[in-house]
Amino acid sequence: MAATASGVFRRTALERADQRVSWERTDQAFFSSGACHVLAWTCRDFYADKGIGLAAMYMGDFEHPLHVYARWGAWAFDASGWNLESELHQVNSDFEGLPVREVETITSDLREFCEAHVHRQPHQYWADPTERARAYVSRYDPPWLS
């Protein structure tokens, strides 16, 4: 699957207000916008022996990251599957009409990240998305198998 901008799946006002409505979106929509950070941490844990890192993409002058993803070498994993990190940046930049200002390597744990960047922790969703994220990660062959 080609890299797709996370903003394509930006949540509506109703999806932001009602966690169940947000939960009922497709997996790609759910993990593109609203739970990308959960997917990234799950990917890192799923491939614990591969040295997968985590990254936060900042655009324009936004205080908080637009998107969070897992990374391995030149590759990035998000709701679009595995794509070159440069392609992920480009599709998001093109969609938002803003340059990627910064890509921060995430070194904190999930709880600390969520608190610092106003993101939900898994237990704060309508249902815990961790198992859903594991199933999603397992659908995509990682680049080291190519």
Rank of each mutant, 00 (worst) to 15 (best):
M1Y: 08
T4W: 01
G7I: 10
V8M: 11
R10D: 13
R11K: 13
W23G: 04
R25N: 10
R25T: 06
T26H: 06
T26P: 02
D27E: 02
S33T: 09
A35M: 11
L39P: 03
W41K: 02
T42G: 04
A48K: 08
D49E: 08
D49N: 07
K50Q: 14
G53L: 06
L54V: 03
A55W: 02
A55H: 07
Y58N: 00
V68Q: 11
V68I: 14
W75K: 04
A79D: 03
A79V: 12
E85W: 12
E87G: 03
H89K: 14
D94S: 14
F95K: 08
F95T: 12
F95R: 07
F95L: 06
V100H: 00
E104I: 12
E104M: 09
I106P: 00
S108E: 13
S108Y: 06
S108W: 09
S108P: 01
D109P: 02
V118N: 06
V118Y: 04
H119I: 13
H119E: 09
P122W: 09
H123G: 10
H123C: 12
Q124S: 10
Y125P: 06
A127I: 07
A127Q: 15
A127K: 15
D128R: 03
E131F: 04
P142K: 02
P143Y: 02
S146R: 15
